[in-house]
Design a protein around this nucleic acid. Structure first.
Lengths: 231, 231
DNA sequence: TACTAATCTTAACATAAAATTAACATAGAC
DNA sequence: GTCTATGTTAATTTTATGTTAAGATTAGTA
């Protein structure tokens, strides 16, 4: 997934910290927005619907914890991740606002490398979750002559190992997760490619073709005008 | 994982607290070890390789924070969890503690039930793919023409001694611990390098290359897009 | 403590595999 | 039959991994 489709909202009352974070994250290709207090943060968050909000705890007026709680109440921001920035010396009782609905905390002084890797990990976790790599704890899926081992990313057809590429693997995983359900192209895109990836029209078809070659034509049926299903 | 395979090292300078914690945790079936200061803690930790270290912050000589930092430097203890015990009012140190690489903090006064549930939650994170140097105390591992002697980091391939560096050694140990299992880069990082270490993208590849040179290309297979496995 | 050697990490670049695109073909709905 | 959605293919771009050597770090030793 390209970073430049990822929106991050930075909230801190100190301009130089905003500057510092902005600089390091823009370098990674993220789209950066800023707010200098909780109130502003709420307004901006509603407007831009960021993927991630980095929230300083200590701020005048509405503090980080409260801002977090408010953000959690807005349902267009359901999918937004929230991470706190905390400084050494701040009372932990505030940070305990982890329970306010934050997904991570990052402590100052912030090292750019650590920051970036934490953010990547956060976003990745979020994405994997959607792909149901983590929630669905069924690690081995069997359907007819097809067997998928999620632990090893291994697919077997009639007991013969078939090597699938990443996209093929996730595509198959999606279709097989609900046999007989017709998945629209949009659903496939958002699940396998992610919400904010734009690829051409024929991309899915090409992958479907490769998948059919590898696992057998009969399993993937085209419902013209609607999508594909696994049988 | 059965509780009686779990080793916990308790570190506190007050004997009665050690006693109290010991009693409650032994009741849960954990294997309990104790140390009464930071120095002793380090020695014992190296020796027993506990799953979890419960560390008091305030201690004479080496304090909890420092002990934590030192433990984090020992690579056999990469997968050891560290939790701080803190008295109310010592809030500042909790922040510092997280920075030092702690996984949790538990504040005094300690209620047995809370303690136990926190510990259970912590240990849950300990995924089973992780290399567990503690449970698998088999000192010599053999797989095909490869023989590993955990005592001295020495590996024999076709009866010829091969010297591996520590990183190479742990990497091999991880991969060989589950032949045919595909280990993702994330899994490798968190197991060999530890959660709190950030290294660049190419680091794993370099180590894989060196390992392949030393033990033979055929044993480590790249599954592009997913990870590596040992065969 | 400072020196030395070993190990680890980084960064730049190379390569192979995978993903995407674009041009064109085909089949089914109307 | 025409139109549109999908199929097919090969060329192209992008990405993940491989490789190398230099620089940084660490551990061992004087």
């Amino acid at each position: 997934m390209e970073n430049n489709n990822i929106k991050i909202l930075l909230v801190d009352d100190e301009a130089d910290i905003l500057e510092f974070l902005s600089y390091n994250l823009k370098k990674q290709g993220y789209q950066i927005f800023t707010a200098k207090n909780g109130k502003q943060a709420l307004i901006k968050a509603k407007e831009i619907i960021p993927h991630l909000v980095l929230l300083d705890i200590m701020m005048p007026e509405i503090d980080g914890i409260e801002a977090c709680e408010q953000i959690r109440k807005i349902d267009t921001l359901n999918n937004t991740l929230i991470a706190f920035l905390t400084a050494r010396g701040e009372d932990y009782s505030q940070i305990a606002g982890f329970e306010a609905g934050a997904d991570d905390y990052i402590s100052k002084p912030i090292k750019p490398k650590v920051l970036v890797s934490r953010i990547k990990a956060l976003l990745k976790r979020h994405n994997d979750y959607k792909l149901d790599l983590r929630i669905d704890n069924q690690k081995i899926i069997k359907n007819g002559n097809i067997l998928i081992d999620k632990n090893n990313y291994k697919v077997t057809v009639n007991n013969e190992i078939v090597n699938l590429t990443k996209k093929e693997f996730y595509l198959l995983l999606l279709l097989i997760s609900k046999p007989e359900k017709v998945f629209t192209r949009d659903e496939i895109f958002s699940s396998v490619w992610g919400e904010n990836v734009v690829v051409g029209d024929r991309t899915i078809d090409v992958h479907i073709k490769k998948l059919r070659e590898k696992i057998g034509d009969e399993h993937i049926v085209t419902i013209k005008g609607f999508g594909y299903k696994f049988v």
